[in-house]
């Protein structure tokens, strides 16, 4: 059977002006099934986010290619949508207008846009905030807008680039639970980049440990926890075992990079 997403031997080197080139990805291969929730964990600057941008079609690999549903990815497309760590909300647009943005660019008629945006705002629990501006929202609410905007174009694949990294711990727990509910309802394929072992273990069907730069898939870990998952599950010994497995694989990468060497 052909996997839904297949990345083969992806290489990418950045060549910044006046500085040495940086190889971000080298020989990264990965397969993702339809409807799967997959997390990428790895040390800072290992190329996880770069890989996400390649998947999104904003960056072109020097070598290798990625196929989605049998078609080669060569640029952005409506079957994929990204949720950004820094939210990426237009500050001069209301919640509603921000959620409508993707549909607007897709050419969806205004009336349908409005209706669908309202539905999604409801789905992420922001009803009543349609006409607020981003600066009037908390971090968690901003990311709900980001999620609604990504879902609005009805993509097959949700790419999430450390979406909860900028949130405080409790908001983060809450958002994780809600993401799982939404994922369960919408059946999207999710590729989730995170620093947090706990987050990856809690959310995912599979976790990919990415090596320190240049990034490549080092180890695939199946998370055999039942679904639906709840917060108590995180307190079980099985969950701790899973975390230990991920940590053991990640540890060498952190050491080889030198902990404390941020970015």
């Amino acid at each position: 059977m052909v996997p839904y997403i297949r990345a083969q031997n992806v290489n990418l080197t950045f060549r910044p002006k006046n500085r040495d080139p940086v190889t971000a990805l080298q020989g990264l291969s990965l397969e993702v099934g339809r409807g799967e929730f997959l997390s990428l964990v790895g040390p800072s600057g290992c190329g996880k986010s770069t890989f996400l941008n390649v998947l999104l079609g904003l960056l072109r690999p020097d070598q290798g290619e990625i196929h989605l549903d049998g078609k080669k990815i060569s640029g952005p497309g409506y079957e994929r949508a990204m949720v950004f760590q820094e939210f990426g909300l237009l500050p001069w647009r209301t919640v509603l207008a921000n959620v409508e943005l993707g549909m607007e660019l897709k050419g969806v008629p205004a009336s349908i846009r409005r209706e669908r945006a309202s539905e999604l705002i409801n789905l992420v629990g922001l009803t009543g905030f349609e006409h607020h501006y981003p600066h009037e929202l908390s971090g968690g609410m901003k990311q709900r807008v980001g999620l609604a905007r990504a879902l609005a174009t009805d993509p097959e694949v949700l790419l999430m680039d450390e979406p909860f990294a900028a949130l405080d711990a409790q908001t983060r727990d809450l958002m994780q639970a809600e993401l799982l509910q939404i994922w369960d309802r919408t059946k999207k394929t999710v590729i989730f980049v995170t620093h947090s072992i706990e987050e990856a273990a809690y959310l995912s069907d599979r976790v990919v440990v990415v090596t320190s730069r240049p990034g490549r898939a080092k180890k695939l870990i199946d998370i055999k926890l039942p679904r639906p998952r709840d917060y108590e599950m995180r307190l079980t010994p099985e969950f701790n075992d899973i975390k230990a497995t991920i940590w053991n694989s990640l540890k060498d990468e952190l050491i080889s990079r030198g902990i404390g060497d941020g970015r």
């Binding site: 999104l56 904003l58 952005p76 409506y78 994929r80 949508a81 990426g88 993707g102």
Partner: peptide, 8 residues
Amino acid sequence: NMVRSFGA
């Protein structure tokens, strides 16, 4: 990047 990701 965000608007580009929507194919702008």
